[in-house]
C-alpha cells in the first residue's frame, strides 16, 4: 500500500486519465485489502507474474516504437491524418487490424502512443476493434466451429460493424465533421 501511494504521488503529474486509473485501482485495492488480505496478496502475485511474463514483449515494443518514431516524425503522422486522409487512414487501420494478430497487451500501448502522435481516436477504434473482432489468422479454427461460409459472413459482418463503430466514435469525439 505504501509502495502504491508513493508510486502514485511520484507520477501524479500524469494527465486526468492516469489519475482516474490510479484512483480506481487505489479504491479497489483498498476494499480488497479490507475484505480479504490473503486474496489481495494473491491478486498482487498474479499482477506481478503477468507483468514479468510480458516484460520481454514490452521491451521489444519499446525498442521498435522508439526507432519507428525517429524515422516517422509526429508531424508526418499528423499530416497524413488530416482531411480526407483520415477516412482512408481508418480503412487502412481496419484492414491492418483484420489481417494481423497482435495481443491486446501490445496493441493498446501502441495505440496510446499513436494517439499522442496525433492519430485520431476513430482511426484507433477501427484498428483495435477489427483486431479483436475480425480474424484472418484465426479463420482456420473458426471455420471448424461455424463452417467456412458462416465464418466468412461473420468476419465480413463484424468488419463492417467495426467500421460503423469507428465512424460513430469519430462523430462523438468530433473528429469527423
Amino acid at each position: 500500500m505504501i509502495i502504491f501511494v508513493s508510486y502514485y504521488t511520484l507520477l501524479y503529474k500524469g494527465g486526468g486519465n492516469v489519475r482516474m486509473l490510479a484512483m480506481l485501482t487505489g479504491v479497489c485495492l483498498f476494499f480488497s485489502l479490507v475484505v480479504d488480505l490473503s486474496r489481495t496478496i494473491q491478486a498482487l502475485r498474479i499482477a506481478l507474474r503477468r507483468f514479468t511474463k510480458l516484460l520481454g514483449e514490452f521491451a521489444l515494443l519499446l525498442v521498435l516504437v522508439s526507432l519507428a518514431l525517429t524515422f516517422v516524425s509526429p508531424q508526418r503522422i499528423t499530416e497524413y491524418m488530416q482531411g480526407p486522409g483520415k477516412l482512408i487512414g481508418a480503412l487502412i487501420a481496419a484492414v491492418v487490424g483484420s489481417l494481423t494478430y497482435v495481443p491486446g497487451f501490445i496493441a493498446y500501448p501502441l495505440a496510446g502512443v499513436l494517439h499522442q502522435q496525433g492519430v485520431p481516436y476513430f482511426v484507433l477504434a477501427a484498428f483495435v476493434t477489427t483486431l479483436m473482432m475480425v480474424g484472418v489468422v484465426t479463420f482456420p479454427i473458426e471455420q471448424r466451429v461455424l463452417g467456412a461460409k458462416v465464418a466468412l459472413v461473420r468476419n465480413l459482418l463484424y468488419f463492417f460493424l467495426a467500421l460503423l463503430t469507428s465512424l460513430a466514435i469519430g462523430i462523438i469525439f468530433k473528429e469527423i465533421p
Binding site: 502504491f4 492516469v18 486509473l21 490510479a22 480506481l24 485501482t25 479497489c28 485495492l29 480488497s32 489481495t40 494473491q42 491478486a43 498482487l44 502475485r45 498474479i46 499482477a47 506481478l48 503477468r50 507483468f51
Partner: peptide, 8 residues
C-alpha cells in the same frame, strides 16, 4: 495500475 486491477 492496469496489472493490479487485472489481478484483483
Amino acid at each position: 495500475f492496469a496489472f493490479v486491477l487485472i489481478g484483483l
